[in-house]
Write a protein that binds this DNA or RNA. Structure first.
Lengths: 218, 218
DNA sequence: ATATATACGTTGTTTTTCCAACAAAGGAGT
DNA sequence: ACTCCTTTGTTGGAAAAACAACGTATATAT
């Protein structure tokens, strides 16, 4: 357990919890490390997940299989990343599976133990619960704004929706975006070259100025 | 307070908590009822929200104002509905405002009090925290699957993505959808008539069968 | 400085969606 | 059955996006 502490400490679930307290708390949480070989299933779509997982090493993919069996990778997680926040305490979903894409170690934390107070470490427990809520709430916010962008019908509107939210976030009409063109196109679910073309048209129309990933709204 | 108990009891935040316990718990939660007139701001974009809100009566809109000041209504909430789960414990967002669209009563519940255990009612408190997590996690799941649909480029792919997830959810290739055509089109962010046309083409291509809101995947 | 790879922009063609207008089908009430 | 109203389906032209192919800029390494 000792050797995983640094990874755990850097996980958002344990932010604000001192390393000494982490050691104490780890005894109450029914933690449990498992090792998976490449291509092992960590969770199949019909399983119900009772634990929160944190990747200690390796790489795992959250995948979706549709009605016809077509697979697509939703996200790929590496050391320190958390999973299961959404599946937990929900009915069996039948939507996602989790597979190790290389040999991986996962630490599982009993969900019940996180949400119910215990005798030994109640102070940290409160912090833990708040961290947990914050993580999900933050993700929720990200998903909501992304949906806002994706709901726009034209590429131009999608771009403007995204740039607008970035400008509000930075409290400035000039800001850097964390994507290159291909990544931005993927994020907005449009075609890269078409998006590039639209960007130049928007510049011509005096809506925006940009160079590389530095953007200015006019 | 008494007269609001039924509304509160029906709120997902308090499911599984008996009415007697609800009365006890309500004393610990620093609840606070406020009345708003039509068009009053309940939250402006730059405010930080410290409380969870439940609508007791009336109707409120969660709105978004973009960089240029264009407003759009994201959701509209009525009696029993909860808001603030996502804003709470996040940095000021500058993205959403909340406005009463008619005279409304809102009960605010101190967020700190929800997440920290208290002396008087710890059993219900645990249930409360679990309800809170479940609500957000469930919403998260909904948002994630919606993003999956919206990320598809063509209308046909969006429809199939949606129908596939419904089929998996119902564990059957035949199911009823909870939308009429206009609602489905809005949900998938496509144009109704174009979607109707695409549906008939899909039927002609032997991908699906449908009548009204009864669908079968082939 | 040169070579090489990667990111970005441009253009023309094909495909898809939007839009508007209308036609057909289904439901509710008399 | 008939009317009225709502929902769903159809069609053709206009607009937009996807796609492919290529040209240009920028970064990196040797």
């Amino acid at each position: 357990m000792q050797k995983y502490l640094t990874t755990l400490q850097n996980s958002p679930l344990f932010t604000g919890i001192a390393i000494d307290d982490l050691i104490k708390i780890s005894n109450c949480l029914l933690m449990n490390v498992k090792t998976y070989a490449k291509n092992d299933y960590i969770l199949t779509a019909s399983d119900k997940l009772h634990n929160l997982g944190i990747v200690l090493s390796g790489r795992i993919n959250i995948i979706q299989e549709d009605y016809w069996g077509n697979r697509s990778i939703l996200t790929t997680l590496t050391a320190g990343d958390l999973f299961g926040e959404n599946f937990i305490c929900n009915e069996p979903h039948d939507l996602f599976s989790i597979i190790a894409s290389e040999q991986s170690e996962i630490i599982f934390i009993n969900y019940q133990k996180i949400t119910s107070p215990c005798s030994c470490a109640c102070d940290f427990h409160t912090k833990l619960i708040q961290n947990m809520l914050q993580i999900i709430a933050q993700k929720n916010l990200l998903l909501t704004t992304k949906i806002e962008h994706l709901s726009k019908k034209t590429t131009r509107e999608k771009i403007l929706s995204y740039l607008s939210s970035e400008a509000l976030k930075h409290r400035s009409n000039n800001f850097l975006i964390p994507f290159n063109r291909q990544e931005l196109a993927d994020f907005l679910s449009v075609e890269r070259s078409a998006m590039s073309a639209e960007l130049s048209r928007m510049q011509k129309d005096n809506l925006i100025r940009y160079h590389r990933n530095n953007f200015t709204l006019l």
